[in-house]
């Protein structure tokens, strides 16, 4: 469903992606792991067209993302949960969740959009009284849930999760992981998650890829990650301070 081949991206003299190749099948929960600054977020943003790659081809259902004629129609297939939730401060929670349903091609009547938003909030474990609050009034965990509700509000085919558990306590992280897994299975959506949290990987992933040095270093089933022989993957999952991955001290 999603295919990347030879994707390169640099910012100034800093080369982030040096030829990323990967393939995500329909309905699969695909997780990219890798250290901070290895280009995981850049990869997601290239797929969405938020950043233009310097080289390489990115296809969704065989269509090159840079060649899509109707950008709105293309983006309406996606939902995304951002690392910091990226909720709009100036509008209440329900309008954040129903943002896509209040404008554009998916526009619904106000009351119907609100009902859907409240239903999605309930789905992520938030009560309807949160609907009229503003994002700044919510805790980090609640903001992530609202971000998740917004990502699934228009029932997208593909959902991206950018560091879904960063900044959360372990219990809340576990709750978010379970929610993501349940929702992806329930909706039959294709999911792509980027994280460096191995608990997330084990809870969410069908398939895992490790990004290191701007390239995909290893790809395999989530169940095989612990038994894999790749020294980079082993160092990453065990968190060993010494190994092939250079660390600053």
């Amino acid at each position: 469903m999603i295919e990347l081949s030879g994707v390169h991206k640099s910012f100034g003299s800093k080369q982030i992606l040096r030829g990323v190749d990967l393939s995500v099948a329909r309905g699969e929960s695909f997780v990219i792991i890798g250290g901070s600054g290895t280009g995981k977020s850049v990869t997601l943003k290239c797929i969405l067209g938020l950043i233009a790659p310097d080289q390489g081809v990115i296809k969704v259902d065989g269509e090159e993302v840079t060649q899509t004629g109707d950008r709105d129609a293309f983006l309406s297939r996606f939902g995304m949960l951002f690392q910091g939730a990226a909720l709009f401060d100036s509008i209440p929670v329900w309008q954040n969740v129903a943002f896509r349903l209040l404008r554009g091609t998916l526009k619904r009547p106000h009351s119907e959009a609100r009902e859907i938003a409240i239903e999605k909030l309930r789905r992520v474990g938030l009560s309807p009284d949160v609907a009229d609050q503003f994002p700044a009034e919510l805790s980090g965990g609640m903001q992530k849930r609202v971000g998740l509700a917004r990502a699934i509000a228009a029932d997208p085919e593909i959902i991206f999760f950018d560091e879904p558990t960063t900044g959360l306590d372990p219990i809340m992280a576990g709750v978010i992981n379970d929610l993501i897994r349940e929702i992806v299975v329930e909706m039959g959506a294709t999911a792509m998650t980027i994280t460096h949290d191995m608990t997330s990987v084990r809870a969410i992933a069908d398939k895992v890829a490790m990004l290191h040095g701007g390239k995909i270093r290893w790809t395999g089933k989530a169940a095989d990650i612990d038994s894999g022989q790749d020294p980079y993957v082993q160092q990453f999952i065990t968190g060993a301070p010494t190994g092939p991955i250079e660390t600053l001290r």
Partner: peptide, 16 residues
């Protein structure tokens, strides 16, 4: 602030 907190990126992903 919207840019540094990825709210602008969020707008784009929401077809806006």
């Amino acid at each position: 602030t919207m840019k540094v907190t990825e709210q602008i990126d969020a707008l784009v992903t929401l077809s806006t």
